[in-house]
């Protein structure tokens, strides 16, 4: 009986895909991968560097193992390894993902010297006073006045927005963009119900809240209905 293959190599137009079986032991897998790649190397001589994708199916690889597999592939000539794909994620990863997609509601005043940070969206029922800071992985919605600093999309989400019932921030930050209040601003004009977002020139723009309906349709989480 022919032994089942633990490593299958498929060529695609974007390079090669390595399918690594998820039922054998990790040790076996590594050994076979090394052998297969060495054989393969001999057959395809002086080719240009080939991108490699790895699919490990239902196997969970910890960070050290991922590095080991990547190293193994890198050692072979002409192979450039990209992502390792797995169907399995840890609970910690899921929790993080979930937290980043959650709206956290906080009802208090963020006072001078205080920092409030949430992984996902923030709904603040209260004010951010001068010297206070709110930070979110996602969007920031402030029901009261924003007079301090707000930083949305802190992990690099350019699509994130900031809204406030009264927009008088000392600084606005979205992703890696920054926008501060003009010096000596006379904020006598009421800045009511406004939003801030990053435009196509990578600048933070402050505008009427309603522009978001067009600009950020993905703010809609409501499904179904009319």
């Amino acid at each position: 009986m022919k032994k089942r293959q633990n490593v299958t190599i498929k060529g695609t137009k974007d390079g090669i895909v390595l399918h690594l079986d998820d039922s054998c032991s990790y040790y076996e897998l590594k050994k076979e991968l090394d052998e297969k790649l060495s054989e393969n190397q001999r057959t395809q001589a002086e080719r240009q560097s080939t991108p490699v994708k790895v699919d490990v199916g239902n196997r969970y690889l910890n960070d050290a193992q991922r590095e080991e597999i990547k190293d193994l592939i890198r050692q072979k000539k002409n192979l450039v390894v990209g992502e390792i794909e797995s169907n399995v994620v840890t609970k910690a990863e899921v929790d993080k993902l979930k937290a980043e997609n959650e709206v956290v509601t906080v009802s208090r005043i963020i006072r001078s010297g205080q920092v409030l940070e949430v992984p996902g969206d923030l709904l603040l029922i209260g004010d951010v006073n001068p010297g206070g800071t709110v930070i979110a992985g996602g969007n920031i919605f402030i029901m009261g006045s924003l007079k301090g600093i707000a930083h949305a999309g802190v992990f690099g989400n350019d699509q994130a927005v900031i809204t406030a019932s009264s927009m008088q921030p000392s600084q606005l930050r979205i992703s890696d963009c920054l926008n501060r209040a003009p010096d000596n601003a006379q904020n006598n004009d009421k800045r009511e119900m406004e939003c801030a977002y990053i435009d196509e020139n990578h600048q933070i723009i402050v505008d009427r809240l309603q522009v978001l309906i067009q600009l950020r349709p993905n703010l809609n989480r409501f499904e179904g209905g009319h």
């Binding site: 006072r111 001078s112 010297g113 205080q114 006073n129 001068p130 010297g131 206070g132």
Partner: peptide, 12 residues
């Protein structure tokens, strides 16, 4: 007022 705000935060 700014310092008062900071103090109130600490008292809370």
């Amino acid at each position: 007022v700014r310092d008062a705000d900071r103090i109130i935060g600490l008292l809370e």
